[in-house]
Design a protein around this nucleic acid. Structure first.
Length: 273
DNA sequence: GTAAACCTGGCA
DNA sequence: TGCCAGGTTTAC
């Protein structure tokens, strides 16, 4: 489900509802997520005050009053939702972790596929966040010069490179497809064969797409909902993702689909070179 | 590099 | 029944 804009949307919706609250109960119903939830998880979270809600790449960081953070990755199908005190939640499945706060509300981690993960750790020390590339909206670090510097000795496609979290943080399949369409560059193009100007174009397109997607509170192509159950609206602005056969918004040529870097990819064969 | 793995649900 | 899905990791 979630790439950077969706995680950012979760952060913005859940932050004001949990910051300042104390954790009064922690219920881990299933530990076997993508990585096993540590035995110390409950004790590390219980009694702590949530002091801020931050995001790094696709990770949500709920910082605690002891300097550690409750770090959550939503994987493909994960959701973090806030249930008000006494809210009916009958028959809900796949709710693997429930954290109750001192106002009676709870934060629920629901993840049918269990590709998500969570831990309590120092964000500066955890291997989870080590080596992640610059945030795409960081104008100082994610630049055309930076991208151009990655061109030498790699045979990787630009799509593969942009989805690599070590290169740039938080981009996934939907937004990389959109970014390359806006850049007019085919997802199959070899990184090494991009011009410096094309690297600049990609950086600008990334910023534009990601800012626009955050403004629209993410993409709900099947089931993404924010922490209070609202869908995003970026799916109505998509130009290529999951639009195989539909006319290109720029030239009318049908959008093509093929697998690139192990993921379904969509592009206009006329506009993108 | 690419393929398969993790796991469940939805849809043709 | 089979294929696909917003992600990441591991193994040829």
């Amino acid at each position: 489900m979630p790439e950077l804009p969706e995680v950012e949307t979760i952060r913005r919706t859940i932050g004001p509802l949990v910051v300042g609250r104390t954790v009064v109960a922690v219920d881990v119903r299933r530990r076997d997520l993508r990585r096993k939830v540590a035995p110390s998880f409950e004790a590390s979270l219980l009694g702590r005050v949530i002091v801020s809600a931050d995001r790094r790449a696709k990770y949500l960081l709920l910082r605690l009053d002891d300097g550690l953070a409750w770090i959550v990755h939503l994987g493909m199908s994960g959701r973090l939702l806030r249930l008000a005190a006494g809210a009916a939640n009958d028959g809900a499945r796949h709710e693997h972790v429930v954290v109750t706060l001192d106002d009676g509300a709870s934060v629920v981690f629901r993840d049918p596929r269990r590709f998500g993960l969570m831990e309590i750790a120092d964000p500066l020390g955890t291997p989870l966040l080590a080596g992640i590339g610059p945030e795409p909206l960081d104008r100082a670090r994610f630049t055309g010069e930076y991208l151009a510097g990655l061109r030498s000795r790699t045979r990787r496609s630009i799509k593969d490179v942009l989805m690599d979290q070590h290169v740039v943080a938080g981009l996934g399949n939907i937004y990389v497809n959109e970014i390359l369409f806006l850049s007019r560059i085919r997802p199959t193009r070899r990184m090494a064969r991009l011009s410096r100007a094309e690297c600049e174009t990609i950086v600008l397109a990334t910023r534009e797409i990601i800012e626009e997607a955050i403004e629209h509170r993410g993409t709900s192509v099947s089931d993404f909902l924010d922490a209070i159950g609202r869908p995003g609206s970026y799916q109505w602005r998509r130009r290529v993702y999951d639009r195989e056969g539909e006319p290109c918004s720029a030239c009318g040529h049908p959008i093509r689909a093929r697998t690139i870097a192990q993921r379904s990819s969509f592009f206009c064969g006329r506009c993108q070179h």
